[in-house]
C-alpha cells in the first residue's frame, strides 16, 4: 500500500461532518500534548500553597488544584501522559496481537487451538480486572499501566487478526496465488496481513479510547502516573477527596477524557464508513 492510498480513507472520514469535528479535536489535543512545554502557562509541578483551590480566574483560566498548581497546565500535561500511555501501549498491543493472531490463523492446528482458548478466556474477563491484577504484579506507575493496557487488549487484537486471516485465506485470489506457486511467507506478508490491516488498525484506534478510560481508572485508584506527573486519571484521584470543596478539580479532567474518547469513537465510526469494513469488524 502506498502512503497516499493508505491515507485516502482518513481524508474521506474527515470530510464527513462528524468526522471533521472529531478529527479537529483529535488534532488539537495531540498538538497540545506534543507542544505542552511550549504552550502551558506554568510548570506542571509548580506549587503555590497559599493559592490553592482557586476557582477559574484570569491568572488561572481553569483554577488551581489543592497545591495551588495551575489546572490548565496540569490538563495540558495530563493530555501528554494519558495520550502517550494509551497510544503507545495500544500500538504495542496491536503489533503483538497481529503477530499472534496471524501466526495462529496461518499455522493452525494445535497452536491455533491453544491461542484461541487463552484468548477467549481472557477476552471474556473485564479489562479493568486484568489491568488491576497486572498492576499489582508489576507495581503502580506509568510502566505498570502501559503493560496492563497492552495485555488487557491483546486478546481483542489477536482474535480480530486471526479471524481476518481465516476469512481472507479462503478467498479466491489467495487460492490463485497459491496455485501459481507463491510461497507461504510471501502470501502471508504480501496478501493476508495487508488486507487484515485496516480493520485491526481501526479496532486499535477505537481501543485507544477505551485505553484512555482504563488509564484514567487506574489513575483514579492511585495506580497510574505517580505524583507530581499529571495524567487525567491521577488528577481525579486527588480530586475525589475534595468533591465538594473544589469540584472543578475532578470535573475538568473528566471532561477532557470524555470529549477525547467521544471524538475517537466518532472519528473511528467515520473511518469504518469510509473503509466500508463494518461487516468485517462485526464478524470478529
Amino acid at each position: 500500500m502506498s502512503l497516499p492510498r493508505a491515507l485516502s480513507p482518513v481524508v474521506r472520514a474527515a470530510k464527513t461532518p462528524m468526522g471533521a469535528i472529531a478529527g479537529l479535536w483529535l488534532v488539537l489535543i495531540i498538538a497540545v500534548a506534543i507542544l505542552a512545554p511550549l504552550i502551558a502557562p506554568y510548570a506542571y509541578d509548580a506549587q503555590n500553597l497559599p493559592a490553592s483551590f482557586q476557582p477559574p480566574s484570569s491568572a488561572h483560566l481553569l483554577g488551581t488544584d489543592e497545591f495551588g498548581r495551575d489546572l490548565l497546565t496540569r490538563i495540558i500535561y495530563g493530555a501528554r501522559t494519558s495520550l502517550s500511555v494509551s497510544v503507545i501501549s495500544i500500538a504495542i498491543s496491536v503489533f503483538a496481537g497481529m503477530v499472534l493472531g496471524a501466526a495462529a490463523g496461518y499455522v493452525g492446528g494445535a497452536f491455533d487451538r491453544a491461542v484461541t482458548i487463552v484468548v477467549d478466556l481472557s477476552w471474556s474477563f473485564p479489562e479493568i480486572l486484568v489491568a488491576l491484577i497486572l498492576v499489582a504484579i508489576i507495581g503502580p506507575g506509568v510502566t505498570g499501566t502501559m503493560a496492563a493496557i497492552c495485555v488487557a487488549y491483546l486478546a481483542q487484537f489477536t482474535r480480530l487478526t486471526r479471524s481476518q486471516i481465516l476469512a481472507i485465506r479462503s478467498e479466491t485470489y489467495i487460492e490463485a496465488a497459491r496455485s501459481l506457486g507463491a510461497g507461504g511467507r510471501f502470501i502471508l506478508f504480501r496478501h493476508l496481513l495487508p488486507n487484515a490491516l485496516a480493520p485491526v488498525l481501526v479496532a486499535g484506534m477505537l481501543a485507544t479510547g477505551d485505553a484512555i478510560i482504563l488509564e484514567a481508572t487506574l489513575g483514579f485508584f492511585g495506580l497510574g502516573a505517580q505524583p507530581p506527573l499529571p495524567s487525567w486519571g491521577s488528577m481525579m484521584s486527588s480530586g475525589s477527596a475534595l468533591l465538594f470543596k473544589a469540584p472543578w478539580i475532578i470535573i475538568l479532567p473528566g471532561l477532557a477524557v470524555a470529549i477525547t474518547v467521544v471524538a475517537i469513537n466518532l472519528f473511528g465510526d467515520a473511518l469504518i464508513g469510509a473503509l466500508d469494513i463494518k461487516t468485517r469488524l462485526r464478524e470478529a
Binding site: I213, T217, M236, L243, F244, G254, A258, V261, V262, N265
Partner: peptide
C-alpha cells in the same frame, strides 16, 4: 448511547454523588 459507553464509570459515579448526594 455514545456518551454512556465512553464516560468513565468512576467519573459518572463521582458526578452523581456531587449532584444528588452533596
Amino acid at each position: 448511547v455514545l456518551l454512556g459507553s465512553t464516560l468513565p464509570s468512576f467519573w459518572i459515579g463521582l458526578i452523581l454523588i456531587l449532584v444528588f448526594s452533596v
